[in-house]
Design a binder for these strands. Structure first.
Length: 300
DNA sequence: GTCCAGGGATGTG
DNA sequence: CACATCCATGGA
């Protein structure tokens, strides 16, 4: 048994992030029981199954409960796990500028109070983030979770710990070799199957990587590279930049969920137009992804 | 049967 | 660049 404690920043609420993580009972990339999160993570060659909970001092208690034999717990593994958790919960972000903006924003003012301490939870694995974006296009969330589960259970790998199975997301290397016929049992559109396979091929070929996308820390160039790939439009590009690359200025402005949130919070009888969205978000400068993430929370 | 869901591609002005 | 049109599939 090995335990590490990850310190948390100001303006962080474990409970709020937990509520977000619990949003679908059909989630297959982690399991939550008694406010503890169980997840298998891939660390290069090694895997680990971790249990995350709130430590008594408010930090995050991370226990390795499987996936890697104890004699292999080197400092590098422990560091990699801590890094993963820091990235996953976006713990390096100083939220105070966002809350300052939100305090005088009509859409965000009460929203940030309601979800105080919520972070944009990440999807650190680029291929997983891309697939989740592609799978989620133009279908309802419940069906998206079902498709993801089928995909993971068919082509991912399970790691056992304490008698439970924990799934690792399929690897791009494996998916790149498939044909659309191999994805037919998932019952998603043929186009989506093509997009998933092509995304995998672009990662395997090296055209697409987290390193390349982060180069220069330029949202515009990352967006341009993502959009150049078939099946990735502006929405998916910004979604990936938000959840995986973690630019706080990513802004999936075409998102139907965001439109519904704004319709709900303003009491409009219709969804906002693009012009209205631009006007309403004009003051979010640099924090669009946090604004979007908080507004999404109004939907469930 | 109808409508829509956390869009994308392609074509046109 | 802004817009129109077609596309694809399951669930409520």
């Amino acid at each position: 048994m090995k335990i590490i404690t990850v310190p948390i920043p100001e303006l962080f609420s474990y409970g709020q992030n937990l509520v977000y993580l619990k949003r679908s009972p059909n989630e297959c990339m982690y399991r939550i029981e008694a406010d503890r999160i169980y997840k298998a993570i891939s660390l290069g060659e090694a895997n680990a199954v971790i249990e995350v909970s709130e430590a008594e001092d408010g930090g995050l208690r991370v226990e390795i409960i499987g996936g890697v034999a104890e004699q292999y717990y080197g400092d590098n593994i422990l560091e990699a796990i801590e890094e993963y958790v820091v990235d996953w919960f976006d713990l390096k972000r100083d939220l105070s500028p966002f809350y300052e903006i939100a305090a005088s924003d009509p859409l965000l003012k009460e929203t940030v109070d309601q979800f105080y301490g919520l972070r944009v939870m990440g999807i650190p694995d680029l291929f997983e983030a891309l697939c989740w974006g592609i799978i989620g296009q133009q279908i309802n969330l419940a069906f998206a979770y079902t498709l993801k589960r089928r995909f993971v259970e068919l082509y991912g790998r399970a790691v056992e710990a304490n008698g439970e199975l924990h799934w690792l997301f399929p690897k791009a290397e494996d998916i790149a070799l498939l044909t659309v016929a191999d994805l037919e049992p998932l019952r998603m559109s043929v186009k989506k199957s093509e997009y998933l396979i092509e995304a995998a091929q672009n990662i395997v070929s090296g055209k697409l990587s987290k390193e390349t996308l982060l180069q220069g820390e330029c949202l515009k160039s990352a967006e341009a590279l993502l959009v150049s790939i078939r099946g990735i439009g502006p929405w998916t590009a910004h979604y990936v930049i938000m959840r995986c690359l973690r630019f706080p200025s990513a802004f999936p402005i075409d998102d139907v969920g965001l439109h519904n949130s704004i319709k709900h919070i303003t009491g409009m009888d219709r969804k906002p137009t693009k012009q209205e969205l631009l006007k309403l978000s004009a003051g979010w400068g640099g924090w669009e992804s946090y604004a979007t993430f908080y507004l999404w929370r109004l939907l469930y």
